[in-house]
Design a protein around this nucleic acid. Structure first.
Lengths: 198, 198
DNA sequence: TCCCAATCTAGTCGTTGTCAAGTTCGGTTT
DNA sequence: AAACCGAACTTGACAACGACTAGATTGGGA
């Protein structure tokens, strides 16, 4: 297996020979897209810019992703997988799961923003659907634990739990909350989530 | 010169008779932008398309808004004003305010999406700031009513109320919720919000 | 009546997404 | 070992876009 980082080999004659195939373009592009979106917002990036960063031609990304939407679809799929993993680690405890949800959103704000932005990616994509239902299953499982201690309907409890965690995370990321500087999102979320479970 | 005027504006408002001066371009552009975003998503529109719809030259919108961000800023300001009005009608009742919040998001999904998307508009715009604090004040007032009946800290109650309403609205709009078809958002939200106040 | 500032047009530049067609390479078959 | 196949990537082209500039037009106030 040949790993070729273009910038490092620049200047050698081997570039023209081995530089044709990047080797790991797909992952490189996704990572670059996440970074670019993090810096400049959801539409502050271009396929050509990603290509430039990766040191490939301007049309190379389209080969792997079809179009711009394809890159966002890949990010969404990655996001739902990461979320599922985070929630699975918290097991069937609402407070822990809720904090994990917030923690995921804060640590992967770009993924989070893409995932819940309807229409900007292909929600019917196979990889997305798979990761999405996986995350959804863990979510429902976690909220069921909370509903057990309550006399409310489980589906209402699930929705309430999901809503409050999702809402807090969204508001936090949007910058709408005015909290003391230096506050960690998870610490700020704890008492808020606690209001739901009593 | 072309003489093209929107039918909507033709009847009621006073519109200039000349083809050169549109007469109400600013409002027309904002409305067209909201419609276009509703159809094709947050970046599925262009200034030139809005200009074409309004029957003016491709650079006319830039005169009123400076750039594309200016249009989004106007939408955000309008959104916060609409939200403030909706919340003010609900007065100091948490459940009613929460339902109004959800109702606003469902009825004005484009405004809602823009408002809480950090970075895509000028959050430091004067009109935005003004409308934003106005909406925020009503919100804090409504949540204070809920906190009165509880023994929790008022700021936690405010955050929890805001989070659960905002989270439900966001999830609903993102299409992530799987509810029976034909369900109204407000009806689905009622039992969920009820879980916070007991 | 005249004049000026707001409004809108016209033209241009650099950039973008996407498409079609060509090139190169690793791996597999023959 | 030689031919070759398909995937990975390049090259070139095109229409559309945002942004900018300079100029044309208009209506309201002096």
């Amino acid at each position: 297996m040949r790993y070729l980082v273009n910038d490092k080999l620049r200047g050698s004659d081997a570039v023209s020979k081995s530089g044709y195939h990047h080797g790991d373009l797909r992952r490189t592009i996704v990572a670059a897209a996440v970074a670019a979106i993090g810096e400049s917002g959801l539409d502050g990036w271009s396929l050509r810019e990603l290509a430039r960063r990766a040191g490939v031609s301007h049309a190379a990304p389209a080969h792997h992703f079809g179009d711009k939407t394809g890159v966002l679809t890949a990010i969404a799929a990655e996001g739902f997988t990461l979320l599922a993993e985070a929630l699975e680690a918290a097991e069937a405890d609402f407070l822990a799961a809720g904090l994990s949800y917030v923690d995921f959103a804060v640590k992967h704000p770009v993924h989070f923003a893409v995932m819940f932005q309807p229409g900007i990616y292909r929600a019917d994509d196979e990889a997305v659907q798979q990761a999405e239902t996986r995350a959804g299953d863990v979510l429902r499982l976690g909220a069921k634990a909370m509903a057990a201690g309550s006399k409310a309907a489980p589906e209402h409890a699930t929705l309430a739990a999901w809503s409050i965690a999702h809402g807090f995370a969204s508001l936090w990321l949007s910058g709408a909350l005015r909290v003391p500087p230096g506050t960690e999102a998870v610490d700020a979320a704890r008492p808020v989530l606690h209001m739901l479970v009593e």
